[in-house]
Design a protein around this nucleic acid. Structure first.
Lengths: 122, 122
DNA sequence: CAGAATCCTGTACGATACTG
DNA sequence: CAGTATCGTACAGGATTCTG
């Protein structure tokens, strides 16, 4: 999913953004970390669907892209903490809105899709 | 990518949102349509990377999810217009911010990642 | 506890060709 | 023009096991 867009002109920055934020868990991870630092296990517990493998991989990619920082403590048992970098925090508003939208949309479809609109998520 | 989350509790709405908006082109498509109605070919031209097949599929899914409306005109040559529904428009702010972020991030990585932050995208 | 290693599968996505 | 129909592949994502 990375480094496919290089020569693409300016046109669609959303496309480019999705190269970074694509993947099923990325934005969810970022959302969880907006609240603050989390250990690997904690993060895992907040995302019931994700496996360790996927969580590890996505975190590594987010780290590579400079959105997440990874701090390893030389202790036993091991402790690894993840936090948003400054760049990562630049997405706080978006993940927040996405969360609200997801909530709103879920209620909307659960409650019957064809009811009168009027209450927007944002 | 659809209908995997059913029994998942309220916890992570971002995860749920990505079930709807996941896929490489969904959000880019939605962004393009914020400006207004577009024909299939027009839409295709604004997204240089996408194939007809993928564009068709993603549009169908967006239609199923009630984010996009599809209008077929009984003409020859055929004309099909796509537009955001009201629900689709509820994502305008998000796609807009995502676009700005993508732009900002791209400049950031292009210009050298380690420069002093301070100018946020939003 | 936080992972690395290994193996496996579904499907997202793509290229090409054909059609009303 | 706006699709469908086929065929094919890469990789996202998962299950399980092993380790410092």
């Amino acid at each position: 999913m990375r480094s496919k867009i290089d020569d693409v002109p300016d046109q669609c920055a959303v496309e480019f953004a999705m190269e970074i934020l694509g993947g099923r868990w990325k934005l969810a991870i970022l959302k969880q970390l907006t609240a603050g630092t989390l250990r690997f296990g904690e993060l895992r517990r907040t995302l019931p669907g994700v496996t360790q493998r996927m969580l590890t991989r996505q975190l590594r990619e987010l780290e590579e892209d400079g959105l997440v920082s990874r701090t390893v403590y030389a202790e036993v048992p091991p402790r690894v903490e993840y936090a948003l970098t400054e760049v990562g925090h630049s997405l706080d508003a978006i993940t927040e809105e996405l969360d609200k939208w997801g909530h709103w949309y879920r209620e909307r479809v659960r409650g019957g899709a064809a009811r009168a609109a009027g209450e927007e998520p944002g």
